[in-house]
């Protein structure tokens, strides 16, 4: 049984002054995330990531389609006992302290007082909120609120955690702490579903990634497969003659001088043998041959470009449709 499953999940928002037109923010999302996976949900601004998360938490209701968590309909109370959620740019109550907020949330799960204290103290430590925990939340900075937001999402040791841009607003130390926290969750076998724009961070924590563009899921893959794609080779040679530089260099994707008499050639995956041979024949020495792997960024950019290329200029018109006439 998947931890998260959606089928043709669609959300349309009414737009315009008379709310007659609709904007399809999410278009037939079908997705399944197995327990223990850390799923990075990527996509440009306005792609529909937050919309998807809000549908999974039933903060908004789908126009059509199904959303299930742990085999139960999203939004049911027994599911909410087992999940955690960090909203995008979280905001809480001005007149509570961080500690009181977490104790309140812990109470809603029905924990005994001593248990609540223990959980809250541990979590605030983990997200790096120190003595500020006794201050009113109205005095918290954006990044501090973000940390409190992550802590409150984990107050019930959730089996499935939804994080909407967990790294946003954090300093480098905060980002590292949150990354460690998510990796801990991954080690403990919990399922994490997070959206992010910080691809370097996402690459280091997720086991799967999906790219959403304009409400449509255009690409999904396991991270090890995404990163295993060979983008080519980097060939480092010494003593490359002027003549050879021109002859061989012009055939490489890129040639850069990295030191005196040393050059790095970037070559396509299939051509590396030929290049090595040619270099040696020209009297140069091969110093190193390194594979160039794709990054999550390549994966992301390719998915977005492919999708936008296919769509053409008419994309916006096709997404804003009149509602069917009601009789």
């Amino acid at each position: 049984m998947p931890a998260i499953r959606t089928e043709a999940l669609t959300k349309e928002f009414p737009v315009g002054f008379w709310r007659k037109r609709v904007h399809r923010a999410l278009d037939q999302l079908t997705l399944s995330v197995e327990p223990g996976e850390v799923f990075g949900f990527l996509g440009p601004n306005g792609a529909g990531k937050t919309t998807t998360l809000k549908l999974l938490l039933q903060l908004i209701f789908p126009t059509s389609g199904v959303a299930e968590i742990l085999g139960r309909p999203a939004g049911s109370v027994d599911v909410r006992h087992r999940i955690g959620y960090l909203p995008e740019t979280p905001y809480f109550y001005d007149n509570l302290t961080a500690e009181e907020l977490l104790l309140y949330f812990a109470k809603l799960f029905g924990y005994a007082p001593a248990d609540r204290r223990r959980r809250v103290d541990r979590l605030l430590d983990e997200v790096g909120i120190g003595s500020e925990r006794r201050q009113m939340l109205r005095r918290f900075s954006k990044g501090m609120l973000q940390r409190v937001g992550v802590a409150q999402a984990l107050v019930n040791d959730p089996e499935v955690v939804f994080l909407d841009e967990p790294m946003s607003g954090l300093d480098p130390i905060g980002r590292r702490q949150i990354r460690e926290l998510i990796l801990d969750l991954r080690r403990q076998g919990r399922t994490v579903f997070f959206s992010s724009h910080i691809l370097a961070d996402a690459e280091s924590i997720c086991s799967q990634a999906g790219v959403l563009v304009a409400g449509r899921l255009v690409s999904v893959g396991r991270l090890d497969e995404i990163l295993a794609v060979e983008r080519g080779w980097e060939l480092v040679v010494a003593d490359l003659s002027e003549v050879a530089q021109r002859a061989i260099g012009s055939r490489a994707r890129r040639i850069t001088q990295i030191a005196l008499g040393r050059h790095a050639l970037e070559v396509a995956p299939t051509e590396s043998d030929q290049f090595v041979r040619d270099c040696i024949e020209s009297g140069a020495h091969v110093v190193a041959l390194n594979p160039l792997h794709a990054t999550l960024e390549d994966f992301f950019l390719r998915a977005v470009q492919d999708e936008r290329g296919n769509e053409g200029a008419s994309s916006d018109d096709s997404r804003a449709t009149e509602p069917p006439p009601t009789s």
Binding site: L59, D78, R80, Y93, F109, A153, F162
Partner: peptide, 14 residues
Amino acid sequence: QRRSIYSLLAKPVT
């Protein structure tokens, strides 16, 4: 409006 309800309704509160 300030969306504090988002995190509250993700808890077991109907």
